[in-house]
């Protein structure tokens, strides 16, 4: 059994881990927003079954779900420098090019799953609900706002929560292109001090706490969405 020496986490090491935690959370937040936006978009379009768009949406969803997130990160990172014009690269570099590429790739990867969740949730709402809304003269925005959305969110919230948890876990893959998130910092500490076990312990605890916190927030949100639910007798 080795003796743990926590002193390496004081000073520089600790600052690195805190910086890394910030980057991880930023990365998770950006890609979560992107995943939700793209996912709802593609999910709704697939649900509406718009003929000309259907094959494109199918291809997008299948490709984003079936290719490993790590390969997608590498793909977007390395191909962006070839495809994007020079000025765009200059702008992106100011934001941290790796960060942008990683959040884009993770956003795309998880948007495929979100799209399928949203489509499944929309399919789960009975047809009678729309007919009833139409019968009592609801406009389309009213139908979406007060009939469709509340039911949809109630159905998909648990799955969205577990998707968010898996997104947070996948942010650790961004170290492959050198995003300085917390896993990267743990590797850095290991390489420079040869005392990696302490750093790994801290990082494991960080992920555990973050993921459990997200799962907890998800179930609170779920309870909030269920608050006015009446079961028809």
């Amino acid at each position: 059994m080795i003796k743990l020496d926590w002193s390496i986490l004081l000073g520089d090491g600790g600052e690195r881990l805190i910086e890394g935690a910030k980057v991880t959370l930023q990365l998770a937040a950006t890609s979560l927003v992107l995943a939700l936006v793209l996912g709802f978009l593609f999910g709704v379009v697939r649900w509406l079954q718009i003929r000309p768009l259907e094959p494109i949406c199918w291809l997008y969803v299948e490709f984003s779900r079936n290719a490993p997130p790590l390969v997608q990160i590498l793909f977007w990172y390395f191909s962006a420098t070839v495809v994007l014009p020079g000025w765009a690269i200059v702008i992106l570099r100011d934001y941290g090019f790796q960060f942008v590429a990683a959040s884009f790739a993770l956003g795309v990867y998880h948007s495929g799953f979100v799209a399928e969740i949203v489509r499944g949730g929309l399919n789960a709402i009975p047809r009678g609900q729309y007919e009833a809304a139409q019968a009592i003269g609801f406009t389309i925005p009213q139908t979406v706002g007060s009939i469709l959305m509340p039911q949809l969110l109630r159905v998909i919230m648990p799955m969205l929560t577990s998707e968010a948890v898996s997104l947070v876990k996948n942010t650790s893959l961004a170290l492959a292109i050198g995003v300085t998130e917390i896993t990267y910092q743990a590797r850095y500490i290991d390489v420079y001090t040869f005392r990696g076990v302490e750093a790994l312990l801290v990082v494991t605890a960080f992920y555990l706490v973050t993921c459990l916190a997200i799962a907890g927030c998800g179930s609170l949100l779920q309870r909030f969405l269920q608050r006015n639910r009446r079961i028809a007798a």
Partner: peptide
Amino acid sequence: EFLRNIPLLILIFWAYFAPPYF
């Protein structure tokens, strides 16, 4: 609950970089 809430990458690092310390 433990393994579902940590990234696989962390687990791989544990399995590969931690045993040499022991």
